[in-house]
Structure formats: structure tokens, C-alpha cells
């Protein structure tokens, strides 16, 4: 699978979920998704199969998302890499009241600091520690530590929501 259309179909949902983990605002998340797809389309001619397709897609998505948030830091808004991202469309109280695990999970991931956010989203997508290490460009043991800490942090934030 190396054509853009095939990759967009297969990994479009993953891209969207990664974008939502960085951008709570719906419209900006859509812009980020478009940006990631464009970057993917431009980077694809250089892809030679040296990494798994999903690793390649995850790298592009996270790199673009990090650039997006860093760029947005020029403007006065609530999003800073490393700080929690308050949901724009719903308040935390609404999320809790709804008792919606999916929404709570998304909100929790959005609030994670950058160093844990990448590991958390990849873990939730089913990436193994070796694959997380490839995406991040760190050692496998460092990736395992981050995965463990990210899971613990999410568990803490979602205490009571998981049966």
C-alpha cells in the first residue's frame, strides 16, 4: 500500500484522532487534518518502505500537529504545547456529566503534556513500544517508560470511568 488514496482511506481515522488529540477546537482540528493529509501527500514520493506505513503516517501526523500547535502559540489562545488544552466545544463538567468514556478519553488525551501525549495516542492506536520508539526517534526502553507513564496518567485522569 503506497498510493496516497489507499493510505488516506486506511489511516484517515488515525490521522483524525491524532489531530483531535492536539486540537480541541473542531474547526482548527479540521484544518490540522487537512494539513496532515497535504504533508502526507508531499512526503509519500520519498517513502521507500524503510518503516511500516502506519509508523510513517504517525510520524507525519505528529510532526505536523506539533508544528501546528507551535505556530498557533504566536496567537493568544489557550493551547500551548506542554500545558493542558481546555475543550472549546464542551466544558469538563459537561463531559463528566455525560458519562461518555469516549469523550472523557479524548478530553484527557488533549490535556496530556506533549511528552506523554504522543506516547498515549500511539498506545491507544495499538502501537508496540518498538513502533513508538520509531515514531519518536528514541530508544525502545525510553519509549516503554513513556508508554507506561502515559497509561498511568490516563488511568489517573479517568479514575472511575473505566469498569
Amino acid at each position: 500500500m503506497t498510493s496516497y488514496d489507499e493510505i488516506a482511506r486506511a489511516y484517515g481515522p488515525l490521522i483524525r484522532r491524532i489531530a483531535r488529540s492536539y486540537e480541541a477546537n473542531g474547526a482548527r482540528a479540521d484544518e490540522l487534518v487537512q494539513d496532515i493529509h497535504l504533508a502526507l501527500w508531499q512526503a509519500l514520493p520519498r517513502y521507500r518502505g524503510e518503516a511500516l506505513v502506519k509508523t510513517f503516517v504517525a510520524r507525519v501526523a505528529h510532526n505536523r500537529a506539533i508544528s501546528h500547535v507551535a505556530r498557533e502559540a504566536r496567537e493568544p489562545r489557550a493551547v500551548e504545547l506542554g500545558e493542558h488544552i481546555p475543550a472549546h466545544d464542551t466544558s469538563p463538567e459537561d463531559v463528566v456529566a455525560r458519562g461518555d468514556l469516549r469523550a472523557k478519553l479524548e478530553a484527557a488525551v488533549q490535556q496530556l503534556p506533549a511528552n506523554l501525549k504522543v506516547a498515549a495516542t500511539l498506545a491507544l492506536e495499538g502501537f508496540a513500544p518498538e513502533e513508538v520508539a520509531e515514531v519518536l526517534g528514541i530508544g525502545v526502553s525510553a519509549a516503554s517508560v513513556r508508554l507506561h507513564r502515559a497509561k498511568e496518567r490516563l488511568k489517573e485522569m479517568l479514575k472511575g470511568s473505566v469498569t
Partner: peptide, 18 residues
């Protein structure tokens, strides 16, 4: 964790190429 993975991967998505 499997429950969280399922919840996460069930998030709605609209994959619209740019």
C-alpha cells in the same frame, strides 16, 4: 486498557483529503 483502546478507536472521523 483494551476498553480504552476500543473507545479511542471508535472516535468518529471524517477523512477528507486536502
Amino acid at each position: 486498557w483494551n476498553e480504552l483502546e476500543r473507545a479511542w478507536q471508535s472516535l468518529p472521523s471524517t477523512a477528507t483529503p486536502a
